Amino acid sequence: MFKHVLKRSRAGAWMLASMMGAAALPLHVQAVEAESVVVRMTDFVNDNGRVQCGLFDREDGWRDESRALKMTTARIEGKRATCRFEQVDPGQYAVAVFHAQANESQVNYGLFGKPQQGVGFSNNPSVTWGPPSFDEAAFRIESATVNLDVQMKY
């Protein structure tokens, strides 16, 4: 297609080749920015203790506080609390929270593995027949702050 243009002049050929090379380069490189995840929790049975919030980025170790990508805590006021995770890269994540009424650092389990504290998860999946899978609680972060509403279950 460009044979006749290239034969006309060397200057034209050089210019055409330069333009074609420049067209192959991206005009604008956009940096991937880290975002925030804001978790608003409701339905606490009381304001005792604090809420422990974990952000997870994989199925392996999901819900194990020691395997969380990020952990934070928040005070409970008026049976509500808010946890915030800053500098979260785009990707797939899930959130697990529990009501640490006695300021414990991990969930305690009773008969048949039922949590002894209130728990909650992103997407508010059912916990009637056991804990949710990572996929049931998973959400994506693309390029904006993610706001999640989590209802505590006891």
Results as ranks from 00 to 15, higher is better:
residue 94 A to T: 09
residue 70 K to C: 01
residue 8 R to F: 07
residue 75 R to H: 06
residue 33 E to N: 11
residue 25 L to Y: 11
residue 107 V to E: 05
residue 46 N to C: 01
residue 22 A to C: 09
residue 44 F to H: 02
residue 40 R to V: 05
residue 95 V to P: 11
residue 15 M to H: 01
residue 5 V to W: 09
residue 70 K to Q: 15
residue 85 F to M: 08
residue 23 A to K: 05
residue 11 A to F: 07
residue 107 V to P: 04
residue 94 A to K: 10
residue 5 V to Y: 12
residue 150 V to P: 14
residue 118 G to T: 03
residue 52 Q to Y: 02
residue 76 I to Q: 03
residue 69 L to F: 08
residue 105 S to T: 12
residue 139 F to T: 11
residue 73 T to Q: 06
residue 119 V to N: 07
residue 135 D to V: 08
residue 22 A to W: 09
residue 89 D to Q: 13
residue 113 G to V: 06
residue 125 P to F: 07
residue 109 Y to L: 11
residue 79 K to V: 03
residue 139 F to I: 09
residue 133 S to C: 07
residue 22 A to F: 12
residue 93 Y to N: 10
residue 99 H to M: 05
residue 17 A to F: 05
residue 80 R to F: 03
residue 131 P to D: 12
residue 12 G to W: 09
residue 91 G to K: 13
residue 69 L to V: 00
residue 124 N to F: 06
residue 5 V to D: 03
residue 2 F to R: 04
residue 83 C to P: 03
residue 149 D to T: 14
residue 78 G to N: 13
residue 113 G to L: 08
residue 13 A to F: 00
residue 56 F to L: 01
residue 120 G to L: 08
residue 48 N to Q: 07
residue 81 A to F: 03
residue 139 F to R: 14
residue 38 V to L: 10
residue 58 R to M: 03
residue 21 G to Q: 04
residue 19 M to A: 15
residue 35 E to R: 14
residue 92 Q to A: 10
residue 58 R to E: 06
residue 12 G to F: 06
residue 53 C to W: 01
residue 18 S to M: 09
residue 32 V to G: 05
residue 27 L to D: 05
residue 82 T to L: 03
residue 141 I to L: 15
residue 144 A to N: 12
residue 111 L to C: 04
residue 142 E to D: 14
residue 33 E to A: 08
residue 107 V to H: 06
residue 56 F to P: 01
residue 145 T to W: 10
residue 17 A to P: 00
residue 60 D to Q: 11
residue 10 R to Y: 01
residue 87 Q to V: 00
residue 19 M to P: 01
residue 95 V to D: 12
residue 144 A to Y: 06
residue 102 A to C: 03
residue 134 F to V: 12
residue 89 D to N: 09
residue 110 G to H: 07
residue 107 V to K: 06
residue 61 G to H: 00
residue 141 I to S: 14
residue 89 D to M: 11
residue 70 K to N: 00
residue 119 V to Q: 08
residue 16 L to V: 08
residue 108 N to Y: 06
residue 44 F to Q: 04
residue 108 N to K: 14
residue 149 D to F: 09
residue 22 A to E: 00
residue 79 K to H: 13
residue 141 I to R: 15
residue 136 E to F: 04
residue 53 C to L: 02
residue 115 P to Q: 07
